[in-house]
Design a protein around this nucleic acid. Structure first.
Length: 417
RNA sequence: GCGGCUCUGGUGAAGUGGUUAACACGUCGGAUUGUGGCUCCGAUAUGCGUGGGUUCGAUUCCCACGAGUCGCCCCA
């Protein structure tokens, strides 16, 4: 097992790295367009941050965290998501001091101990955005639009944007009580999971795969009936902004985000072809989080995108292009003297910013030519006894097969031509 | 954490309770004198996820574990 990476982790190999760099570039470009700045926070944090930030009782905290005790006896956790960390960094570094809205984004690994399957890994990568310090629903819209535009611009079709409001500490408990009462009447008809959810998280019953379609569930009270004026107004403004931006969305009153800190706006962008793991982006407002972590009450909103899922989606649509990194020249040598000259030539070329390699396996000239052809290099630079003697290099264009001999000092210029 | 399916070389794969585990691709080497891409020739798993068990004998049967995959839970 020494040769196997831990379960649920994956190597990103050279042949794929081009795609990663490309998507990271798109992320940075999109975020710059929206005026968001990159932040990098530690891969691990004090366990307590996630307990407080994400909430005890959530699956992420209860059964998915990579938690360990470090040598100093501290309880440390590999971040399962990055919002809590960003908020912590915001507070610790007093980013609020500059005043106004603080707009941040991040790209990085997250860790969740879960059973791996397609689109779900134990170490996975997210790109996420957080806007801290503003409660204006226009920010909700901006955040959603950023996620939407980013995904759209990748060329993905079939994207579906779902939004909902989950209320606030004033109105959610009211709704919650109402649901508990309502579902209490149907206790016998609920599935086992939902029986547990009644007390723990009755909102979740609404979107249960087993009970979700049942009539009494469909007829359950909607959150709209309980929203306070503030939440109701906020939600309708968000929709207004989205319509103004010409984005198609769907209000899904059954959309419930799993993490405790969400308030008001919740949204998810799905790519249905992915199957079970169809959510490619998810987020929402978390006006209570900053206070929970110990700051002065400050509103915030953000989302995260799962990059591996994006790649699967891009793959399905054939949007992943192999990025070939071709080198310019392949130096081929025959004999010990020639090898030295070859190395000198490599140095000369590289200092001229020409990418150049050579075969170090002491193969036959013919074998080296094969390597050269396979490498995709445009030129083979051949150095044999003759070239060594009169300080020349035979330059063979591997595409046209034409070849010509040049003095060493002229080779770089010729290749650059 | 639960359930289904799967696990043969670098890759795609065929195959059997018992001599040398097909075939293809790839890789490497060669086809006289210093040169690639086509063609031809040759080499390339003492090994069939790992560990046990059944058996005279297992890659083929059984069990456990591991990994992958699909679904559940949950989520990105």
């Amino acid at each position: 097992m020494l040769t196997n990476a831990p379960r649920g982790t994956k190597d990103i190999l050279p042949e794929q790295i081009g795609n990663w760099i490309a998507i990271e570039n798109k992320i940075r470009k999109t975020c710059a367009t929206y005026g968001y700045e990159e932040i990098r926070t530690p891969i691990f944090e004090h366990t307590e941050l996630f307990h407080r930030g994400i909430g005890e009782g959530t699956d992420v905290v209860d059964k998915e965290m990579y938690t360990f005790t470090d040598r100093g006896g501290r309880s440390i956790t590999l971040r399962p998501e990055n919002t809590a960390s960003v908020v912590r960094a915001y507070l610790q570094n007093k980013l609020y001091a500059a005043g106004g809205l603080v707009k941040l984004f991040y790209i990085g690994s997250m860790f969740r101990y879960d059973r791996p399957q397609a689109g779900r890994l134990r170490e996975f990568h997210q790109f996420g955005v957080e806007a801290l310090g503003e409660e204006n629903p226009a920010v909700d819209a901006e955040i959603i639009l950023l996620a939407w535009d980013f995904l759209k611009n990748l060329g993905l079709d079939e994207l579906r944007l779902k939004i909902n409001t989950v209320g606030c500490p004033n109105c959610r408990p009211v709704y919650r009580q109402k649901l508990i009462h309502y579902f209490g009447e149907y206790l016998d008809e609920l599935c086992g999971d939902c029986k547990n959810r009644i007390e723990k998280n009755p909102l979740r019953i609404l979107d249960c795969k087993i009970d979700g379609g049942k009539e009494f569930v469909e007829d359950a009270p909607k959150i709209e009936t309980c929203l306070c004026d503030d939440c109701r107004e906020h939600f309708s403004r968000v929709q207004e902004f989205l319509r103004a931006a010409n984005v198609d969305f769907e209000v899904d009153s059954r959309l419930v985000r799993g993490l405790d800190y969400y308030t008001k706006t919740a949204f998810e962008i799905q790519y249905p072809p992915l199957g079970a793991q169809s959510a490619v982006a998810g987020g929402g407002r978390y006006d209570g989080l900053i206070k929970e972590i110990g700051g002065t009450p400050t509103p915030g909103i953000g989302f995260a995108v799962g990059l591996e899922r994006i790649f699967i989606a891009l793959e399905k649509q054939n949007l992943l292009k192999p990025v070939e990194n071709k080198i310019d020249a392949f130096v081929v040598t025959a004999g010990a003297m020639a090898e030295v000259c070859g190395l000198k030539l490599l140095t000369i070329l590289r200092r001229e910013n020409i990418s150049a390699v050579m075969d170090f396996a002491k193969r036959s000239l013919k074998a080296q030519m094969k390597q050269a052809a396979k490498s995709g290099a445009k030129f083979a630079l051949i150095i044999g006894e003759e070239e060594v003697e009169n300080s020349t290099v035979t330059v063979k264009n591997l595409e046209t097969s034409a070849q010509e001999k040049f003095p060493v000092r002229e080779v770089a210029a010729y290749i650059k031509k």
